[in-house]
Design a protein around this nucleic acid. Structure first.
Lengths: 155, 155
DNA sequence: CGTGCCTTGTTATGTTATAACATACGCTCT
DNA sequence: AGAGCGTATGTTATAACATAACAAGGCACG
């Protein structure tokens, strides 16, 4: 399992893979990847850093695609609901999904230096505690904060 | 490891244990458990549910201990920094620590029905992915959302 | 062609959080 | 006692994040 984001990689492939995956998934599931939604996904894909909803909105506004908060939140909500993006709770921000199309339980490595985020996976670590408590887990947020390789060298 | 919070238990012992532990820790570490800080800890301890900063502030205001947001945020910051309370990222809320005094990496079971939160522990699940990526983890947030035993019966 | 559903546009407001500066309190050193 | 210092509190203002509610457009399907 690799954690894409901090390593050098062919980023244009990230973008095109994610877009085409989203197109396929939408076609298959009768979902509409409208211009705003598609553009928001592209904006998130431009970097592996998390963007706040208002950062996204500023981009949309500059391009004439919308200027009011609900425009951004709706598009982000669509992308998150359908697995094309994830919300980073620790940053109140959003990031494009690095494993498009896969049904997955994501976990994140968040650099406090450069705010880049790498997505990886983790096996749910709370199963035992939950079953002892009779608690039914529906979803687990796992977010590690720290420093990426580049920011460890020059903090 | 038990996950205190959803089970029946002697809650007054929770409260007094946590307060006395905080007093001892503050005395030992030359920290000041001032009236506002102590009262905020008591407010958090009154239930195992997470409270928003403005909920806490409303309580303080009713008691004449402060009415402006920084009052609550400072006290909560003090408690979190010193391990007497935890921030629940998924709720933008705060909860008293259930393992006072212990140096620990907490994890949480959050009931979406009654908003109670149980604190437990989990071994850091991202060590392997992080070391592969060269990422230095400083802290890991683990928060499971779901239903507690009571809310599964009557949702 | 009209009805229904999804999407978008817009206004307004609610909620969470912090920057910045002023004041007060307690301690120690002389 | 009084000066100096560090921590805590009081207060104003605003930043940052998020959603409720309603109006209007567009498209598909019968």
């Amino acid at each position: 399992m690799t954690a894409t984001g901090f390593d050098r990689h062919d980023h244009s492939a990230c973008v095109s893979d994610a877009i085409s995956s989203a197109e396929q998934h939408c076609a298959a599931a009768d979902l509409r990847l409208t211009p705003v939604r598609r553009r928001v996904l592209e904006i998130l894909l431009e970097s592996h850093a998390a963007l706040g909803a208002y950062d996204v909105l500023a981009r949309l506004d500059a391009e004439g695609l919308g200027s009011k908060p609900p425009v951004a939140y709706r598009a982000l909500g669509f992308l998150v609901d359908n697995g094309f993006a994830h919300r980073i709770e620790g940053l109140n921000a959003f990031i494009a999904c690095a494993h498009p199309g896969a049904d997955h339980a994501p976990a994140f490595l968040i650099c406090r230096g450069c705010h880049k985020v790498a997505e990886t996976r983790a096996t749910a670590p709370l199963g035992q505690a939950a079953s002892q408590a009779g608690f039914a887990i529906e979803q687990t947020v796992i977010e590690a904060q720290g420093l990426c390789p580049a920011c460890q060298v020059q903090p």
